[in-house]
Design a protein around this nucleic acid. Structure first.
Lengths: 189, 189
DNA sequence: TAGGTATCTTGTCAACGGCAAGATATGCTT
DNA sequence: AAGCATATCTTGCCGTTGACAAGATACCTA
């Protein structure tokens, strides 16, 4: 979609979001430049403003898209373990979206569309926990289980993306994640 | 150290690092401006360049300081559980350092001082895992245990700082973290 | 076909990061 | 104590960026 001659682009909003994801994956969200995105899309430097208002506006749209893509990806997991693997897989494959989603200083995290989309993804995440056998804490432990599961997959994904993990972790994030998450079910008891 | 009239500041490097931590805590690392730091320290806009070269240089120094502060903070934990709590506590109290440390696109993560400081903090983290009873995997499971523990505390800390956790998580990060980490030892088996 | 609106362009401004050149303080050497 | 080298800080400048304003062009509907 580099060319698209004529005064009107046709699908500039979509093109800018895609270009933003690519640019963020290349150099991180901090180095993101609206003017660079405009250049990549072949439009003038002020064109993005019409669709997103300002930079936080664009990243807000990207975050909304990310939460919806995450909810979709999580639905593929049929168990808590597999859903955790899907969470990590999403964070690695759609790294740009993931990075923005959990960086509220970059966008308007309290915008209604964001709140709604985040709620959708969280609902899917929690749906897998209620199916577990109740722990020693009874029904009250469901919240703790959800928080623990979410924390371990989110932490693993973040550390993986940051390149902070030692080489022993391997090269396949799905496999490594599965091993780590299993630790939640097979403790040294 | 706001004033310090005269041509020379006296301790500009220290003042800039402190001001950077404050500014990042206020508005995140993306909004950080060297010129703003210079204004806060009462020096000219080009003064920071002498001490840190450029913006990544300043954040590199901040990351090094962060890894050393983390290693120090972790030493206070006498068990794996308490060390995990200390990790979360560090992430919340020294939020600016923590955010920069795990964002390699912001600084020179491969600089030798960074590699050394990161190694020091990781050594402390791993020292608590070897004291654990060996899991079903034998000695090989130590790496997995370390990764699982690191992931769960890092994920919890990140989610807490991002404001992503639901209100049920409470207001005290240490208490909430302790509850979640315990889940690693008391599974529904 | 004509008016209205959505979309995009051009022009401008302040702020920023980075560089170069100069000014001032500090410390070392003799 | 005097002079020189160096560290530290300033002033001035340039290219880029985000944001805004005003105008141009294409689409769409009545």
């Amino acid at each position: 979609m580099t060319d698209a001659r004529g005064y009107h682009h046709g699908d500039l909003r979509r093109a800018l979001l895609t270009a933003a994801a690519v640019a963020i994956e290349e150099s991180g969200p901090t180095a993101l430049s609206l003017r660079d995105l405009a250049r990549r899309a072949g439009v003038s430097h002020a064109a993005p403003a019409h669709h997103f208002g300002d930079k936080p506006g664009l990243l807000t749209a990207l975050a909304v898209e990310g939460f919806d893509l995450l909810a979709e990806a999580l639905k593929a997991g049929d168990s808590l373990l597999e859903m955790g693997v899907a969470y990590v897989d999403f964070a690695v494959r759609r790294r740009a979206h993931f990075e923005v989603m959990y960086r509220p200083d970059l966008y308007r995290a309290d915008a209604p569309e964001v709140v709604a989309a985040r709620g959708r993804s969280r609902a899917v995440l929690n749906s897998a926990v209620v199916d577990l056998p109740a722990g020693p804490g009874g029904a009250d432990s469901a919240a703790r289980d959800a928080l623990a599961a979410w924390s371990i997959v989110h932490g693993f994904a973040t550390l993986w993306n940051a390149g902070a993990l030692p080489d022993e972790a391997g090269t396949d994030p799905r496999e490594a994640a599965r091993t780590v998450i299993r630790r939640l079910f097979e403790p040294p008891c």
